[in-house]
Design a protein around this nucleic acid. Sequence first.
DNA 1: CTTAGAATAT
DNA 2: AATATTCTAA
Length: 218
Amino acid sequence: MVMKYITNGASDFLIKPVRIEELKNIWQHVFRKKIGEEQIKNNNAQHIIGQLLSPPNIVPSPCPSRTTGMAEAAMALKSEVRETSGTVTDIRDLRKSRLSWTMQLHCQFIRAVNSLGSEKAVPKKILEVMNVKHLTRQQVASHLQKYRLHQRKSTQTLCKDDAASSSSHPTHEPNDPKTQLFNHSSNSVYLDEDGCMEITDYSLPMDDLSSGSDCMLG
DNA sequence: CTTAGAATAT
DNA sequence: AATATTCTAA
């Protein structure tokens, strides 16, 4: 498999979690080659980078500006995982290929879901409520799917125990997925049935310099 | 055409 | 197991 690419002209490989340094290196090489020519096509360069980053990765060209690619790319490559006052507001980190649902993120997710209520807790709205830049609807959807699976599992387990016999295991918290009305406390709800987190304090001003309005809807 | 949700795939 | 991607039906 690897050979195939080499014979096709690839000169180097990057392993999945691509780091900034590696990319800088690549850029240098690209420039050395091209520097002799009169025109350096930045678009082309960006394209190359895009290809070097494996397909499912985020490509560092958010906006169609054909400026001097280098600087911009370097900027874009800086980790943009921003966290302000314990609240994640941006998940973009080009070193990572997959999103990691940290507890913070998960918490925010849970909060969003709870504050929306069972009926309205659909990916799009969750996304809006969470207000995390660069988080996609599909990512939320995927997470939601898993979350619901967990929920079902725990409720089933509890029901079984309930009907059967013997002592109960306080591992998880009972919950009615259907008949449950959620408390719309906007600011202090913790403890989800998933029980994998009990962070109970998020309150501080948010928005620092990360407020750029990217994926918001009014 | 957009999206939620299930089914797969990595 | 966790996330992503694809498929299907509203």
